[in-house]
Structures are given as C-alpha cells and as structure tokens.
Amino acid sequence: MKLALKIWRQNNASSPGKMVDYTVDNIEPDMSFLEMLDILNDELIVKGEDTVAFDHDCREGICGMCSLFINGEAHGPDRLVTTCQLHMRKFKDGDTIYIEPFRAKAFPVIKDLVVDRSSFDRIQQSGGFISVNTSGNTIDANTIPIPKHDADKAFDAATCIGCGACVATCKNSSAMLFVSAKVSQFSLLPQGKVEAKERVLNMVNQMDAEGFGNCTNTGACEVECPKGISLENIARMNREYLKSSLI
C-alpha cells in the first residue's frame, strides 16, 4: 500500500506546530499502525530528518500509552482497539491519513504526537485508590463475600487503561468516562465503599481543576473507548456525587 500521511509536527510545548505531508510506500495490511509509523521514522532517519515522536509502550493494548487521533477518531476507525492494535488492513492503497495528537486543554502537546496526560495521574492521586494498612494483620480480600453482579461491574470498570481516548474524542474534552470508571471500580466493592464519599468528591474536584470540559451525554466516549467502558459508570458517578455532596 502507498499512503499519504498528514501528521501534526510540533517541536516542543511552546512552539506553534503544523500539519506536514509525508508519503509511505510498501505498507503491508498486516502491519500495525505503529509499525507503519516506525517505517516512516526509519526513512526520516536515513534522510537525516527529525523523526515523528509518538507514545507507545506495550504494543498489545494493555498499557494505554499509545494515543493518536487518526482520520478524525481516537485510536482510528476500528472499535474496541488501541492504536497499537489497529491494523493497516483498515486502510486502502492511496488513502490519505490524518494523524494528530489527542487534543484537550488538559492534555498539552509535548512534542509532535506526544501529549502530557499527567492530569489523569493527578485525578488518580486525588482519590483513585483505597487506603490499606499493611502492618501485617491485613484481612485477605477473598474472605469478604461479594455479589457476582457487583464484582463483574467493578471488574469491567477496572479494565480502563487510562488512555484518554474518551477525552480526545469528546466534543467537550470531558474526562467523565475515565473518572467514572475509576470511581466505580472501587465504590462497587466493600473495600472501596469506606472512602467512597471523599473519593468521588475529590476526584471530580480535581477533574474540574484540570480544565476538562463538561459531559453532555453525547456517548462518543463509550463508542471510542478501547475497553468498552459503559456510560452506566457516568450515571453511577453522578448519583454518588449527588449523594455525597448532599449528605
């Protein structure tokens, strides 16, 4: 396959940046999207040009590091996959592909396609945990009976990899899907219920302070989320927030 690429290039956080055209040839349908970018970068190295910076780590859909807004969609046109799991067979010979960084005020660009998602870390630090006393007499979590239904819902929420696709795709740059998944994964379980009230209040506070937008329930996040995190979590978070701020 021969492809025309339009890639966002930006030297550093404070430089303006622009879309730059490239072409790549001999792309196999079985390659992953990131391998296609590796090939482009190899060619740029040979030419002595600056390579395109992009985030990646596990390359198997579990770490949440790879990002990219491809042809107008977070993680590209496929569903329930991250960019590292996106294959070139989703594209046709001669296609033009737009490749942009995840965009949000709370995700500033560091270089080219790499953005700073530490706002997510700060939200996590504000309450996305349970306090455990590890003095030696901790009770084994498996001794506490948990209804299967709750355990399943908590596990589903816990599959969120914190990639930020929900923010990138949302027309409002809202982080509600991410935050609601993190709130739900704890609040559904007995260990998490203890701090549920402070957790939801603190995490929502931090989310607002980071400058994310407001959810208007378009549902785009749920469609683009590589882990299929459900909007149900947002309803649960709203409910818990309301309860926690009134009582």
Partner: peptide
Amino acid sequence: KNRASRPIGYAKYNGAANA
C-alpha cells in the same frame, strides 16, 4: 466552557462516527 476545553481543534474530526 466546553469549547474553551479544547483551545486547538483537530484538522479532521469525525463527530458523526460516534455521536
């Protein structure tokens, strides 16, 4: 506020794909 949450927009944004 929501518009201000994304000061630099996308060159290509396919909103119809998911909402």
